[in-house]
Amino acid sequence: MLNKIRDYCRDLLESKKVEGILAVYTENGNYFPYFFTKKEELNNLCIDKKYLLLNSVKPLRENLVFLLQSKMPGKRIGILARGCDERALFELSKRGQVNLDNIETIGYSCNEEQAKICTCPTPYPTVNLKFGEKVEGVSEHKRWKEFSQLDIEGKRKFWEKEFSKCIKCFGCRNACPICFCKECLMEDRKFVKGGELPVEIPSFHFVQRYHHAAQCISCGECEIACPMDIPLRLISFVLLNRVKKLYDYTPGMNPKQECPIYTIKEERNEEALDELL
């Protein structure tokens, strides 16, 4: 697959269809995101190591792709996208953070191993899959069994222990492609006290989980970035399932479908929801 992708990218660059291609570069065993503009460099392109390309650059709080686009307005950018990259792209475009028109998405699927590392339910781009086969994703968090057996009080104690480990590195937020707010509630001093460890439980972690209830693209970056292995996505899984069931919506699947929590298009008949309150 790698060679096919390299050939395809070479064609894109040679034919000047794109200004450059954002992908992962490898050298001396290390790897990092890179903007390929010369075809000779494509020998260093790698697909087996993951860095989210749609990363939200902190402390600027702008998306990398947005920054690239704003540096060369009107030019076309290629992105060698995994499933999560594509989903991030769609979610960001809905919120005006990137311009989809100037992006050439070259989608490829992850293997099962990678899907396991990220606990990814859809390890392939749903719209722009060009290389590889769709493989089965992971639909359950690795600690779900343990967690789901707890009662309400047990869950509270579970989180109290897990959140006490938090060292407030903001890694879960910094690594998240969807977190681009200029003013973040996690830093709001009225809401979360500054300079205190352990952090306030549960408001510090609640903010991001709740805000991403219908935005989380399941890339798994927040858990990878957490030095203390806090299983944050246990909550996300519950909420995403709920959103899917109630509003038939999964973030990142369709760039045209609006987020049901923030955009109310028509006054639909939703009396059934009252039952749940």
């Binding site: 509270r156 104690k157 709740y210 939703e270 929801l273």
Partner: peptide, 21 residues
Amino acid sequence: NYSSRRRAVILKDTLESLGID
């Protein structure tokens, strides 16, 4: 209040996951 309702339903689930009745 449409937004409020949609959010409230999700909020209930979040509370439950966090161990708050």
